[in-house]
């Protein structure tokens, strides 16, 4: 029996999420590794065009669950649909992009069908211990190597960027429907609308220089030297989420997966540890500088230049050094 691997894509308002391509790349690689076949699965309403787009890959098939009650995402609708499909088709592995959508419903799907769950995988390898997945723990400061136990399907969500979308193989696959039986009572929620989270938005996406502070800054009362440096560099101030949550800066300064995505020429990260949810918002920056008192902080892995030290000493020193070099130059 060949191993069957599904990659569940994500779509919204007529567009496929780019992380679906990463899931296809991962499914193809896992199929190569295990000698199996990869298929893509897409849920929605009137998704024929999107299915044809997905079919341009080296896949055994694209399976579509097309139903009016799947027009918008709901955890109930997605769990009921996929539980029935997985029960009928029996894939061995089902890969999902690790997005705010799939994190919400995939654990419930695992619980409902008795599947094992590997959240936020960043890689896999096959060795003596069998198939081993790697995933971040302790907010990305460490990683765990894990394997699953027991029978039944394995559900895996894949961290953003862990598998390169560019490595996926093009091809041509057939599109085949999955049966869907849904009632309004299955959905679990009645969607009322969408709103902007931060109120009036400061647009950080066009900023050339961003000085960003993290929890390490220690309080709203300690921001003045940072603001002085930012003014000198004509920079916008940005922040990691805990700074916003604590009320030290307004929500529209947040950078990361639930905040803004930025790509300045220079990103100065002060007292930011470098969790993935922050990195996805700033990794497009040309030059990243990190100041952190912990030499092991993950931010140093994406930074080009780093200073290991207390930001309360380094920031005034930077301000002085910029002034000095301008006076000299």
């Amino acid at each position: 029996m060949t191993t069957r691997i599904w990659a569940v894509l994500q779509q919204r308002e007529g567009k496929l999420h780019r992380m679906g391509w990463e899931a296809i790349a991962a499914a193809q690689r896992l199929a190569d590794e295990l000698g199996g076949s990869a298929e893509a699965v897409l849920l929605g309403s009137e998704i024929g065009d999107l299915a044809r787009e997905a079919a341009g890959h080296d896949l055994a098939a694209v399976r579509t669950a097309d139903h009016p009650l799947l027009a918008g995402y709901t955890p109930g609708g997605y769990v009921a649909t996929l539980a029935a499909a997985i029960g009928a088709e029996r894939p061995d592995f089902v890969l999902f992009p690790h997005t705010y959508q799939s994190v919400e419903y995939v654990p419930r799907l695992a619980q409902a069908i008795g599947a094992a769950l590997v959240p936020e995988a960043i890689g896999f390898e096959r060795g003596e211990a069998g198939l081993v997945w790697r995933r971040p723990i302790l907010t990305g400061k460490m990683q765990a190597r894990v394997r699953t136990r027991g029978a039944g399907p394995v559900l895996v969500s894949l961290q953003s960027g862990a598998f390169s979308a560019d490595s996926r193989r093009p091809g041509s696959a057939g599109v085949a429907p999955l049966p869907v039986e849904l009632g309004a009572a299955d959905l679990g929620r009645e969607v009322l609308g969408v709103e902007q989270a931060g109120g009036d938005q400061v647009d950080l996406s066009k900023a050339e220089v961003i000085v960003a502070v993290g929890r390490g800054v220690g309080g709203a009362d300690k921001l003045a030297p940072v603001q002085e440096l930012a003014a000198l560099l004509k920079a916008e101030i940005g922040a990691s989420r805990p700074v916003i949550d604590a009320g030290w800066l307004p929500r529209d300064r947040q950078i990361g997966s639930s905040g803004q995505t930025v790509s300045p020429k220079l990103y100065l990260a002060l007292g930011i540890s470098g969790a993935i949810q922050h990195l996805v918002g700033m990794k497009g920056s040309t030059v990243v500088v990190a100041v952190n008192k912990d030499a092991g902080a993950p931010i140093f892995k994406v930074a080009h230049y780093g200073i290991v030290g207390d930001l309360h000493e380094v920031v005034p020193a930077l301000t002085a050094a910029v002034r000095e070099s301008r006076a000299a130059g």
Partner: peptide, 29 residues
């Protein structure tokens, strides 16, 4: 548990930052 931890460790750094040594003033310069 359906998930078994085999080992934990620190991630290997791919492209590590160029760390500027010295006290705050000289590193900043």
């Amino acid at each position: 548990a359906r998930l078994e931890v085999l080992s934990v460790g620190f991630p290997e750094s791919a492209a590590a930052a160029q760390i500027l040594e010295g006290d705050a003033v000289s590193a900043a310069k």
